[in-house]
Design a binder for these strands. Structure first.
Lengths: 99, 99
DNA sequence: ATGACATTAAATTAAATACTTAAATGCCAG
DNA sequence: CTGGCATTTAAGTATTTAATTTAATGTCAT
């Protein structure tokens, strides 16, 4: 019996994946892998509006996937959970072999 | 520069996560980790209708996440991609520590 | 062929998501 | 305190997704 994941865990993991499963959010998370970035920084890497980037960051922040730090009139965003870094790293290894 | 994931890869991974991000589909994948199961088998583990389980299996099959084998009047489903197994395993380790 | 069971398909309804635009907030410099 | 920049919020619309119900398909056993 290897399937020992509780209903609660299944729900939690599914919700996490759902939050990560949007291309823009996925891209944002990749960009945040090794540094802090502002909305403006991200905006220049992701083809959409500032408002839209901000909305996606809010979604990620609400799920505790990222955290933010305010400095002057910039807000720096970073990945808040090391497990997310591991997960992204694993997915890169599995699905982006020829990098 | 560590962010070397191409747009195409981001799209692909996001789509994969999206497909896996439904609680019922996540549960199904966990149940299929080490064995083949039919719609009926799965139905008894997941609280929903046969038709609904079948629909979720179709979604997973269309994305090549699972494959099916017909024998008599049963259809046995299994995980088609070893990378999915690795991914599930990683997520279990990361997010279900107290198992 | 007929009946029973497993699975799929179609259609409907309800609900959640995403993006755009425009207005609002917060902060600093001068 | 006023103007400008960075960011967030709100409103509105369009799209996607999910579940239920019901009908259809296919296969085996008799």
């Amino acid at each position: 019996m290897k399937d020992d994941m509780k209903d609660e865990d299944v729900e939690h993991v599914a919700a996490l994946l759902k939050t990560m499963s949007h291309p823009i959010r996925m891209r944002i998370l990749c960009l945040l892998q090794d540094k802090e970035l502002t909305v403006g920084d991200l905006r220049s890497e992701v083809k959409t509006s500032n408002a839209n980037v901000s909305q996606h960051l809010t979604i990620l922040r609400n799920k505790q996937i990222i955290a933010s730090r305010k400095e002057a009139n910039y807000i720096y965003n970073r990945i808040a959970d090391k497990r997310i870094l591991e997960l992204i790293s694993t997915m890169k290894n599995l699905f982006c072999p020829a990098k």
